[in-house]
């Protein structure tokens, strides 16, 4: 429901001045070791290694495809996002990806400390796949980024959201990462 509301909000004429700025793909690919495409089949919140006071959620995808740099091991099906619920409490980090079981995603993977994988750009390197009978588009929610540096040359024209066809994104990632589907 939140995505629907978000979309509706962004399409409302009165919100033209509240659009967000997209960063380009170069920086995201630069930070990543590969890309995975799949559907969320498990969300497992638990204490982070090394600090039990911090909760993070391990996201597991059923993998449909992946790209890896020739020199890097292929990304695995799991990555972490900060936050998660524990009992009557929950931890959140504004700007971090918010996922649900069943979400179909394309994720640019960034290696993190202690052998973990995260989303490159925190949230910008994550696209949700939206399917209709005729097509599949990928959408990146640009509102979720968290103080990612945006040097002027990398700014593009403000757009309500980054949206393109799934095939176009997946092919572009394959080319940039030099991997194979």
């Amino acid at each position: 429901m939140s995505i629907l509301l978000l979309t509706a909000f962004m399409l409302a004429p009165s919100t033209v001045t509240t659009q967000v700025v997209a960063l380009d793909l170069d920086g995201l690919v630069e930070a990543s070791s590969g890309a995975i495409w799949g559907r969320v089949v498990n969300l497992d919140a638990g204490p982070r290694d090394g600090n039990a006071k911090v909760v993070e959620t391990t996201v597991t995808l059923e993998i449909y495809g992946r790209h890896a740099r020739p020199s890097a091991p292929p990304p695995t099906a799991r990555f972490v996002v900060p936050g998660g619920r524990f009992g009557r409490f929950a931890q959140v980090v504004p700007g971090a990806p918010r996922l649900r079981l069943g979400d179909e995603l394309v994720v640019l993977i960034e290696p993190l400390a202690r052998g973990r994988q995260g989303v490159a750009g925190f949230n910008q390197g994550l696209w949700r796949v939206e399917r209709t009978a005729q097509s599949a588009t990928v959408v990146s929610d640009r509102t979720g980024v968290e103080l990612v540096p945006a040097p002027a040359p990398r700014l593009t024209a403000p757009v309500p959201r980054d949206e393109r066809t799934f095939d176009a994104l997946w092919q572009e990632l394959a080319t940039r990462l030099g991997g194979a589907r």
Binding site: G27, A31, P94, A96, L147, V148
Partner: peptide
Amino acid sequence: SHPSSVVALTSL
């Protein structure tokens, strides 16, 4: 322990 492009973050 977060992606390198993040300058700062707040946990609630």
